[in-house]
Write a protein that binds this DNA or RNA. Sequence first.
DNA 1: CGTGCCATTGAGTCAATTCAACTTAAGTGG
DNA 2: CCACTTAAGTTGAATTGACTCAATGGCACG
Lengths: 230, 230
Amino acid sequence: MTALTLDTRLAASVHAPVFGQAAEEKSALAGLGSVSHYARNNTIYSEGDGAEYSYKVVAGAVRLAKMLSDGRRQVAQFALPGDFFGIDWLDEHSMTAEALNDVSVICYRRGRLERLSDENHAIRAELFSTLRHDLWAAQNHLVILGRQSALERVASFLLQLIDRRKDARKDTIDIPMSRQDIADYLGLTIETVCRMLTKLKDSAIIEIPDRHTIKVRNHSALRRAAEPEE
Amino acid sequence: MTALTLDTRLAASVHAPVFGQAAEEKSALAGLGSVSHYARNNTIYSEGDGAEYSYKVVAGAVRLAKMLSDGRRQVAQFALPGDFFGIDWLDEHSMTAEALNDVSVICYRRGRLERLSDENHAIRAELFSTLRHDLWAAQNHLVILGRQSALERVASFLLQLIDRRKDARKDTIDIPMSRQDIADYLGLTIETVCRMLTKLKDSAIIEIPDRHTIKVRNHSALRRAAEPEE
DNA sequence: CGTGCCATTGAGTCAATTCAACTTAAGTGG
DNA sequence: CCACTTAAGTTGAATTGACTCAATGGCACG
């Protein structure tokens, strides 16, 4: 299992064009890591692997998930360009990281990152900020999973994607992940995700031109669907 | 709403005896904050309040929760002696912190903590570790809320309490929080929590001497209830 | 132009919820 | 210290939102 990480790293194809340079150039870490590429559905690391590296997404999207022994899966995060991942507490990665599509990442050796953050204030601040942001996001996620209905979850998810996307084509959301990924992120089944999307479509709140694109026709209605005011 | 924090701070009674000094003495932060006391059910800060202070529990237990506008509540964490809380991403607290029972905390001014962590490696390491630990815990919590059954959630919760308790009276768990708190932590109703506890009792896995105490009679069965293999 | 994967829709089931009654414990004031 | 009041917890019955199982539709890729 531990060997898998290296294998897939070596096996990683080099398809992905390197977009999103801007994300790196703004960072104090610019140029300090090495770039790797992973093809769609390849594993970047598995739960339990030694946490030798931390990563930053340059292009593409990464799925971070935990698996139960019987196959149930919980997706904790979708890492998009500019996002760090793999900064774990223990010496082992606590999640599995997989490429949603062709992905480029910068890898930072863990020890090196720790040394750098001791010496450099800007890097330290960036890591702190990342951790606090991720914790904040996880706490919001807890509310979705613990207390929201299926419709609210799907609506919240769409709003999250809107808030995070960089390429602000007005009203159009790009959905890089599968329905199953969305279901596992929201603690639902694939069928329920579908039904809720259909429901939003039938209410004229969204359009679904194709399975990886959604257009928002009524933003305020979508917000109301995500969290009804009492 | 912002004023509430100060009000309750001033109004806080000074009942709680200061146990758990050990937790502070081990820390690099020993003696750098001021101690406050809060009586049962008092608010330490509310969601949206300015994040002027961060805190560390000395004695007692603190409930950290988010509320939805219609009253639904999600408890994200129970902070026990030794735990930090209130280290938020933004300038506002993203959760409400309330005393479960009589509580003693150390308050650290936010700006001071940031300055100290810049100068002192040990403090910095402690904060990093806290954040990474909290993120790790939140991710495990996501699995519970997203993918576990009611019985599994309650069993997992009991196991968490066992892992965290310091006063290791063998097999005996102290439950400082109400059934409603447990329900809001696990994303269930109070009735379901009750039923699952009864089920564990009827299976001879636990005993419930009184509502704030649970005795584990069969640890391996409890572990199996929390996460069935395959 | 199949072949296979992913997504969507429908019908029936079930786990957890809601609603309601009741029990037990914890205060409170006389 | 006890009677009274209120809060918290537990159980039962009925309801329901999401799930499971099953069938169909549609797009991508060889």
